[in-house]
Structures are given as C-alpha cells and as structure tokens.
C-alpha cells in the first residue's frame, strides 16, 4: 500500500491539497492512504521550505503549491 502525506500547517492551500490527494486516490482506485501532517517538527524532517508539500512513500514530490488531481493520479499509477 502506498502512503501519501500532505505536509502543511492547515492553511487553505493545504486543505485543497488534501482534497486533491483524496480525490486522486478515489478516481484511480489506488491502494493508498492519505495522511495529514500538521506537526512542524515532523514536517521539517522532509527538509521542505514551503508548504503545502506532498510526500509519496517518503519521497517529496511536490512543494509550495497545490497539485492538480491528474498530477497526483499520474504518480499513483
């Protein structure tokens, strides 16, 4: 199973990223779970500078912007 982590302190952009990730999982039917990471110390382990960031299986894929649903879906396939 794949794990998608969305790193962000809870701002509007982070919420839309979570929504996009969940939607992408649903449309692709991929076996993946979406986890929200709001703790800053946890977040900094991924060495990011800007949020929201999207981490797929512990690899930072996107940082500082809201990805599109298709973009996340492409990663899951």
């Amino acid at each position: 199973m794949k794990t998608i982590k969305v790193l962000g302190t809870g701002c509007a952009k982070c919420k839309s990223t979570i929504a996009a990730a969940e939607e992408a999982v649903r449309t692709t039917g991929a076996d993946a779970q979406v986890i929200k990471v709001e703790d800053i110390q946890e977040m900094m382990k991924y060495n990011i500078l800007t949020t929201p960031a999207l981490v797929l299986d512990e690899v930072v894929m996107i940082k500082g912007r809201v990805p599109s649903i298709e973009e996340i879906a492409a990663m899951l396939r």
Partner: peptide, 10 residues
C-alpha cells in the same frame, strides 16, 4: 512569493 503559512517551515 509564499503563502503566510509557509513562514514557519521557511
């Protein structure tokens, strides 16, 4: 540009 919620990670 960055969103003000990025100020802490930055």
């Amino acid at each position: 540009p960055f969103c003000s919620c990025s100020s802490v990670p930055l």
